[in-house]
Computed example of a mutant assay.
Amino acid sequence: MATPAKLTSPTELSKPAKRGKRTKRSPIARRQARTAYLFLTPAIIFFGVFFYYPIADILNTSMLTGQRTDEFAGVDNYTSAFEDPQARNAFKVTLQFAAGTTLGAIVLGMGLAVLINQRLRGSLAFKLALLVPYLTSIAVVGLMWRNILDPELGILNRILSDLGLPTQEWLNTHPVATIVAVTLWMTTGHTMILFLAGLQGIPDVYYEAAKVDGANRWQQFRRITVPLLTPTTLFVSVMAVITGLQAFGQAYIITRGGPGEASDLFVFHVYELAFRARDFGYASALSMLLLLVIVAFTLLQLRIGRKREVQY
């Protein structure tokens, strides 16, 4: 005769279940963890010494004042930044520069990638030609374009004069647009390669199905290419904004922040304060504010980009 099953009382049901004992890791798992930490140690030391420590030091300096930054000022440097018209102008100019380089990088990079993805003859040489400026330092690029755009001795105005066209004061009339154009000339090749990699990751079956449905090339580009390139576009836009907000060499070498303060980029303004005016406390405060702005823009872009990401 079978033994009847033991019924569980309501009191026993209400008791919390006993937690099992914590499982000990095996010797192999512990050895693997030690090995992982061993390999991570150089990176941790590198970031600690060259990233986190400088940020902490700048934060500390931003609360000091005086030529030797030996007087505690609290948050006075930060409040002064919001009241400083020169700092506000530098931030506005930097936003214009970052917006121009970001939009230009996306439009030119994606357009050239779509063109080269057609597997035309000479596309390899075209890609190499576009990548050469990106592999050149900003110092060389800046000096080269400063000579090209010189109003009296520059080759560009000489060509315009030979063609009977009016010459231009490139660095005086539209300085921000000029350094945006120079930056795009330098970085478009790299952006194109990123978009080209994204294009080659899109399966051809989507385009074949769209052709069967009667979609033309523009409809395929708008409905398939652009949505599926959202991760690449997000990466390009984030990196372009960060690079644009941190730009320095364009103003320092090509325009010197002029004419007046028309191309006074924010980092160049910080440089002038720190190494010419010797106001390290105020310059450090502006640097910390720029760091917060970059983090805020990055988080905002990532949030918007993840919402727009699609999968077919």
Rank of each mutant, 00 (worst) to 15 (best):
E261Q: 12
V241I: 15
F235T: 14
I254K: 02
R223V: 02
Q246T: 13
V241H: 12
G257A: 02
Q220T: 04
T233M: 15
E261H: 11
V267M: 04
G249S: 14
A251S: 15
V267G: 01
V238A: 11
T232E: 03
P227W: 03
I254W: 05
V241W: 08
Q220L: 05
P231R: 07
I224M: 05
A251H: 02
L265R: 04
V267A: 04
A251I: 08
G249M: 02
T233F: 11
T230N: 12
L234S: 11
V241Y: 09
L228M: 15
T233L: 15
I242N: 04
Q219F: 03
P227I: 05
F266T: 00
Y252C: 09
F248T: 04
F235R: 07
S263Y: 08
Q220K: 11
A240W: 02
G258C: 04
G249Y: 00
T225Y: 07
V236P: 01
L245H: 00
M239G: 13
F266S: 01
Q246E: 12
V267F: 10
Q220F: 02
G260F: 09
V267C: 03
V238D: 07
T233Y: 11
F221Y: 14
I254H: 05
P231V: 10
R222D: 06
V267E: 02
V226R: 11
R222H: 12
M239K: 07
L228Q: 13
L228K: 01
Y252F: 14
G257P: 00
S237R: 03
F266D: 01
Q219Y: 05
T243K: 12
F248N: 06
L265K: 07
Y252N: 15
T243W: 13
Q250M: 14
T230P: 04
V267S: 03
T230E: 10
S237P: 08
T225S: 11
L265T: 01
Q246P: 00
T230V: 13
F266H: 09
S237Y: 09
T233S: 15
F221C: 04
T230Y: 07
R256E: 08
